[in-house]
């Protein structure tokens, strides 16, 4: 079970500059744990109190996992998991 995880610029310090890394796992949570085992520090940027951090979006292929079970969203062999920082803000 190998999936490709696409890493945004701001998190590439954790992957030695790599734009994408391979990982294995059946859910987004397992994928993140697997990446964390080789690229320490990444998980803390993505997960807070067992939930995805509100500042990041995680996609399995073309789907935002927030609408597909969050960290429990299922991942299959050959999928692409994309991590992107949310672009948001406001006047306050």
């Amino acid at each position: 079970m190998a999936v490709t995880v696409s890493i945004p610029t701001i998190l590439r310090t954790h992957t030695g500059g790599e734009k994408s890394v391979e990982a294995t796992g059946k859910t987004v949570a397992e994928i993140i744990d697997d990446v964390e085992s080789r690229h320490g520090g990444l998980k803390a940027r993505l997960v807070k109190e067992d939930k995805l951090h509100r500042f990041v979006n995680v996609y399995v292929n073309d789907e935002d996992v927030r609408f597909a079970g969050g960290l429990d969203a299922e991942v299959s062999d050959g999928d692409t998991v994309t991590i992107l920082p949310a672009v948001a803000g406001g006047m306050r």
Binding site: N57, D64, A86, A88, G90
Partner: peptide, 17 residues
């Protein structure tokens, strides 16, 4: 769609990147 907050739609953001 707010006078006090903005956020790129998450799927638009994926498409953009």
């Amino acid at each position: 769609r707010s006078p006090t907050f903005y956020e790129f739609d998450s799927l638009d953001l994926l498409k953009l990147y």
